[in-house]
Design a binder for these strands. Sequence first.
DNA 1: AACGCCTCTTGTTAAATATCAAGAATGATA
DNA 2: TATCATTCTTGATATTTAACAAGAGGCGTT
Lengths: 235, 235
Amino acid sequence: MDNKFPTPCLGESCGECGFRSTLFDCLSSDQLIMLSKGKDLIKASKGDIIIKQGDKVKDFIFLRVGLAKLTRVSSDGKEQLVGIARPKDFIGLLSLFSSPVHQYSIIAIEDSECCIVEFELINKLVLESGKLAFSLLQKISQVSDMLISNKLDIDNRQLRGRIAFILSLFSKDVYQSTKFNLPVSRKEIGELIDMRVENVVRILSEFRKDKIISIEGTTIEILQPDKLEWIKNHG
Amino acid sequence: MDNKFPTPCLGESCGECGFRSTLFDCLSSDQLIMLSKGKDLIKASKGDIIIKQGDKVKDFIFLRVGLAKLTRVSSDGKEQLVGIARPKDFIGLLSLFSSPVHQYSIIAIEDSECCIVEFELINKLVLESGKLAFSLLQKISQVSDMLISNKLDIDNRQLRGRIAFILSLFSKDVYQSTKFNLPVSRKEIGELIDMRVENVVRILSEFRKDKIISIEGTTIEILQPDKLEWIKNHG
DNA sequence: AACGCCTCTTGTTAAATATCAAGAATGATA
DNA sequence: TATCATTCTTGATATTTAACAAGAGGCGTT
């Protein structure tokens, strides 16, 4: 389940694509046709590796549907979860311009669909259109700002606060619901917020005992969002 | 010493500026003249605030000479040191496109010189020149990649490893010398690598006792770079 | 010089977190 | 179904780090 690769599927025209990023709104119809021809649509099942750290950067990848995790192997060989990518996120955006190879792996944690555009084509469009370049600058800045800011925020919380942070992230940012299926394992949560599995488990049970959340299998429901929010900010 | 503002000083033409970033190499001579007219050169003394978190983003700032620190006030009010900016770094680059206000403060930690260009002008040049946009995309990506990667690296080290990391950073990346003046206080080191002042002090003394470094006032000399490197990677 | 305000330093103690161990639950596979 | 591997869970213990306290040294101000 961990090294299957996504399978390509039929594409459609970008011109009338409802999922298309506002990023491309500035393109002319000619340019949109180029985009349509140059892109591929792929489906990735839960667990599929979409991009592998170390792969040559040759594509521009846009998550249409689903959920994916950004991971990397740190200098000392440990696996780290860097962030979660949501629909409409440009994943792999960070390495796109800074490095010839991807700095992170991107792995689907829910069944997902991605649009893939050759980097050369994007590159060409950027050189043609200052507006597109400008939008891209904004997107990239936002993504990295978010990653850095999350990291910094997590750093000055202790364990309870971090767990609250991550629960709040899934509830508010990802699923917009107080009840959701945790798409990641305890181990992965640990990697994401820098703590051991055992402590992830322990604190989740603690929250359950305190009736802040309920846990049924992989389903989590947040019973006391206010309390969770308080812990996130002060715990 | 903490809230003086930098004083402007005489500019010169960007066309023949030896400090000019390769970023602008692609500009036409007309565009370079625009740049010359639109830019300001400022000098910032040690301690001067160059940019304040929350200020409106209206300038593009390039560090010609000196050294500066990026800091921010976290959501819970604590001061955090996010990174160190070196000459040729574009500081404030991260907030430039992602937010109307600066997300970080930038404070000179050595006497510095910066070039300041109005954002509007850069904006205009980006829209005109795809090449400039492309270079900017690369720069931004590199800066954020570096910040994120440093953060992640620091996270899976313990205290000795973090101190080794920061000493190595100053020695190799900033000063290219085994002997240098620490430009930041123990407290600031603590903020940068997430530890208490007391532990910064303690571990520095420990390294001194183990003859890995020597400390004389603010001057630090790395006596056993290999050992320090080992601690950085395994400690 | 005398004062207050920092940063720096060391020792001691408390709290947070990781490690280790061992069993339960789960899920994939033959 | 039986088996193996993995994740999950809990308890006990060790280690790491933070917090507290108290003094030393430096620097600017009056």
